[in-house]
């Protein structure tokens, strides 16, 4: 395979240039490169580079959004019917709870996780706890992610683990993120992990599913 062709895809993704990224994917496919490899060496590689660039002080949201959009575009070209790549690492269910409209963070997390090979089940914003737990039951994810930016949803967060345990889902991890939840501790929220950023959450998930970090 032609390494420099893949590099061009990675570059287009990092530039947030969706059109160029899709052109590069076309070229790679013509050269006979498999879809799976384009995901691993192209999309995931671009995300890894972005991850390394994004520290707490240096976090450019627009850059991530553009890269995420380009990556999503590439996935759509590769899997037009929306069928997920064959071997996803694991599923993650996520949502923003009832009464909370802030969904930018959740959507970014979704793009990052999808581009890193997770199958994301997005329950959307203003989602009831019941619906989120239903989704966890149906999808057998490795974790449920809650994004919370207003403190009024904290009581709902605290019930999540118990509600899951009632249905025998207590072994599934619950992770939380977003401005309101970041102000609290994991113990006080009764969750397994509080992520400071989308990449922080990614690292935690990778740890659970046993992906080694380069």
């Amino acid at each position: 395979m032609n390494d420099s062709m893949m590099d061009l895809l990675v570059k287009a993704l990092l530039d947030g240039d969706q059109t160029q990224a899709i052109i590069e994917v076309g070229k790679l496919r013509e050269a006979g490169v498999r879809r799976r490899q384009i995901i691993t060496d192209g999309v995931e590689a671009a995300m890894t580079q972005l991850d390394a660039k994004c520290t707490v002080e240096q976090f450019n949201l627009l850059e991530i959004m553009l890269c995420g959009r380009a990556a999503t575009g590439v996935m759509k070209v590769l899997y037009p019917l929306g069928a997920p790549p064959l071997q996803t690492k694991a599923a993650v269910v996520m949502g923003t709870l009832e009464g909370d409209v802030h969904d930018l963070g959740k959507n970014i997390l979704k793009m990052v996780l999808t581009a890193k090979g997770y199958r994301v089940v997005d329950c959307g914003k203003d989602c009831s706890l019941e619906r989120l737990v239903d989704a966890v039951e149906q999808e057998a994810p490795v974790a449920a992610g809650i994004s919370g930016l207003i403190t009024t949803i904290i009581p709902q967060v605290r019930q999540m683990k118990d509600k899951m345990a009632e249905r025998g889902l207590g072994h599934i991890k619950v992770i939380a993120g977003g401005a309101a939840l970041k102000q609290a501790t994991a113990e006080s929220l009764k969750v397994d992990f509080i992520a400071q950023s989308a990449f922080d959450g990614l690292h935690y998930l990778d740890q659970i599913v046993g992906v080694r970090h380069e």
């Binding site: 947030g16 627009l62 959004m65 553009l66 969904d103 930018l104 959507n107």
Partner: peptide
């Protein structure tokens, strides 16, 4: 919508 607005800006 916040995402659409940000993409529009760019």
């Amino acid at each position: 919508g916040i995402e659409a607005a940000l993409y529009l800006a760019i």
